[in-house]
Design a binder for these strands. Structure first.
Length: 564
RNA sequence: UGAGGGAUCGUCCAAUGGUAGGACAGCUGACUCUGGAUCAGCCGAUCGGGGUUCGAAUCCCUGUCCCUCAGCCA
């Protein structure tokens, strides 16, 4: 994946890859690199998961290794099959492949149970009858040690008997758990006799009612890694404290030794990724669902028009480290613009139409003018765009009283209609409120195609659509969902919402070449931004989503002028 | 007043004892049939204090700040 770095200038390695290279050099894992992406199927994948996906699959790919997809489905009360399927689609869309290595932690329930019995037999685990509240009380605090449970010193035989009866369904939920026997005085709270198994009378989406006891994350994860021969188990920072337990379990059981490394998860400005918050946005009707194009979910971003290439390039750019960080969403926006600039065909469309009549252009004449599909890539060729006497231009491209540095159309001013003619504004028609509703102009027939034979310079170039040939379309102008860089800081998210995150425009016109385009088709509306066809489109009515606006330096100039 | 981590331009990431560099953002300018793209330039950082050293972001001491952990969640 990705280009090999320049031969001369070697790219620096992140701390994970540095470790991997050292391990390869020392032959620690017999030359293998094997990672895994282990999501819990309890929500849709978002941009934060994408970092984990790119990291795990990326590290494996960089060193001719393998990366498994493993669903961490140890909690039947929160997981659903719908999420499993959605996650698979999203990972594939991102461009990664687990081949035949699709696993589930639940595949290992039998093995995990055997491991638990072995721990009991070694005197390293015991059944505890304490209630959840008592366990909490006995655990101690961050500064005070915990106390041993009165059930801590049961015999191996009694523990085995009790654990088997837990499995057999003889006890109610919360009445007993299996705990590791480590050290209730450990300064690391994770090591204070962590719970390994709990009783849950819950139907599992894969194992049905086969089990009524389920292993917890700490017990499951390390052993799953071990079973799969994972060499480098990459996870996020909050598991640093758990590494001690990860190592303890593999050590005590003497199984294949996998190693855990933690890296900082991705945070983005103006963005929320917590499942709870995302769900709340849906509940409140702020967004339409998991695939709302304003959401940072992979389905949402896909619908918005983000490409996997852009997301992967972004992940390469932000790097990997152990420092908590918040990446500027502008960097993500940069990468989608960069990708689409190179690949998206150019089209013309008017989002806020103003009628323009070329008075000296023949009434019923129609010309097909040649337009370049992508100036960045001449192999994309050209197309023909119909031109006639009555056109639509953008309301913003006309000012009766132009401010300084306004190069667009205004009375007496000459501009270029892209790929068409140079025109000069001659007249303005207003309604009873003084609103400009129509502009008149004359064209210079010698400038067909947009070039002036006399070499006269024209600063402004406008996009346009022939009224008689225009394709009416609906356009959804998306912007950032939040107006503040750190929406998570708000108890009430709605205060942080950007009221302009979605503007639907129903009276837009596009050039006719867009007719019949399928959902997912991505293009640039010249001078405006990148758009894609939404799945809500009907055969006779395209719905277009704005992925991202073009950089708008005129808007910046205007802002500066206002601030003076 | 426990344990585990982390502090480098506004942001993210490099530099592992030898000129603190890149990307994004911002600002100038050039160019342009997209006020896009491109190109050139500018702005801009080693958490504080000591020490070792010819030389410290890097090593040592010390202080400060930030994050994580007290689920039978992951």
């Amino acid at each position: 994946m990705g280009e090999p770095a320049e031969n001369t200038e070697q790219r620096s390695l992140d701390f994970i890859r540095t470790t991997v290279e050292q391990d390869l050099a020392s032959n620690k894992f017999a030359g293998r690199v094997h990672t895994r992406f282990p999501p819990e199927p309890n929500a849709y994948l978002h941009i934060g998961h994408a970092k984990a996906i790119c990291t795990n699959f990326g590290v494996a790919a960089d060193y001719d290794g393998l990366c498994n997809l493993r669903f961490d489905d140890t909690n039947p009360s929160r997981e659903e099959i719908e999420y499993v399927e959605a996650m698979k689609r999203d990972i594939q869309w991102l461009g990664f492949d687990w081949d035949d290595r699709l696993y589930h932690a639940s595949d290992y329930f039998g093995y995990l149970y055997a491991c638990a019995e072995e721990l009991i037999k070694k005197g390293k685990a015991y059944v505890d009858d304490l209630s959840p509240a008592e366990i909490r009380a006995y655990r101690g605090t961050l500064t005070e040690p915990g106390r041993n449970s009165p059930y801590r010193d049961r015999s191996v035989e009694e523990n085995l008997d009790l654990f088997r009866r837990m499995r057999a369904g003889e006890f109610p939920e919360e009445s007993r758990v299996l705990r590791a026997k480590i050290d209730m005085a450990s300064p690391n709270i994770v090591m204070r006799d962590p719970v390994l198994y709990r009783i849950l009378y819950e139907t599992h989406h894969r194992t049905g009612d086969e089990w009524c006891i389920y292993p917890l994350y700490d017990f499951t994860h390390c052993l799953s890694d071990s079973i799969e021969g994972i060499t480098h188990s990459l996870c996020s920072l909050e598991f640093e404290n758990n590494r001690a337990l990860y190592d303890w379990i593999l050590q005590e059981l003497g199984t294949y030794r996998s190693y855990q490394y933690e890296f900082a998860r991705l945070n983005l400005t103006y963005t929320l990724t917590s499942k709870r918050r995302l769900l709340a946005l849906m509940d409140k009707g702020v967004v339409s669902g998991w695939d709302d194009p304003r959401l940072p979910t992979l389905v949402g971003m896909r619908r918005r028009g983000y490409t996997p290439e852009a997301i992967r390039a972004f992940m390469d750019a932000i790097g990997l480290s152990k420092a908590n960080s918040v990446v500027d969403v502008a960097l993500l926006e940069h990468f989608i613009r960069q990708d689409l600039n190179a690949r998206a065909p150019r089209r013309m469309g008017v989002l806020d139409p103003l009628k323009l009549v070329i008075d000296n252009y023949p009434e019923d004449k129609v010309e097909e003018l040649e337009a370049i599909n992508n100036p960045e890539d001449e192999t994309m060729g050209t197309r023909r765009v119909p031109f006639s006497r009555v056109l639509y231009i953008e309301q913003d491209d006309f000012r009766e009283d132009p401010p300084r540095r306004f190069y667009r159309l205004s009375p007496g001013q000459e501009v270029r209609l892209r790929y068409a003619y140079l025109i000069t504004c001659t007249d303005v028609i207003k309604d009873e409120h003084g609103q400009v509703i129509e502009v008149h102009a004359t064209y210079d027939p010698a400038t067909r195609g947009g070039d002036a034979p006399d070499g006269r310079r024209v600063r402004g170039t406008l996009h346009w659509v022939s009224a008689a040939h225009a394709l009416p379309v609906t356009v959804r102008l998306y912007d950032r969902l939040f107006k503040v860089p750190d929406p998570a800081a708000y108890d009430d998210m709605t205060e942080a919402l950007n009221p302009e995150s979605l503007e639907v425009r129903t009276n837009c016109y596009a050039e006719p070449s867009l007719e019949g385009m399928e959902p997912g088709y991505t293009f640039q509306f010249e001078r405006q931004g990148y758009f894609c066809v939404d799945s809500d489109s009907a055969p006779d009515q395209l719905v277009l989503n704005r992925t991202i606006a073009l950089r708008d330096s005129w808007a910046r100039i205007e802002r500066q002028q206002q601030n003076r």
